[in-house]
């Protein structure tokens, strides 16, 4: 039973410690600063904000590329 307890506590502490370590790392390395920039990090010049990347052709033909597609239109 003692071995089991040591094992369980080991796992629990390791799990807990990994989350605390991740949170501390995130705060100190600035991952939790500049949120809006974070949201736009998945766009680039070729697939900018305002462009759909998965759609069927007639919609592309008739589409007016509009700024309403992206609230914060940076255009990079």
């Amino acid at each position: 039973m003692t071995n089991t307890l040591i094992f369980i506590w080991g796992v629990v502490l390791l799990l807990g410690a990994s989350s605390v370590a991740a949170l501390i790392w995130a705060v100190t390395s600035g991952q939790l600063a500049e949120f809006q920039q974070g949201a736009t990090s998945i766009f680039d010049d070729d697939e900018p904000i305002g462009r759909m990347t998965d759609e069927f052709p007639p919609a592309m033909v008739t589409r007016v590329i509009s700024t309403e597609g992206g609230r914060d239109h940076h255009g990079n």
Binding site: A39, F43, E47, G50, R51, G69
Partner: peptide, 13 residues
């Protein structure tokens, strides 16, 4: 969802 729409998620926060 954001990538297909070309629209950043509403609130990153």
């Amino acid at each position: 969802i954001p990538k297909v729409l070309g629209r950043p998620i509403h609130s990153y926060y």
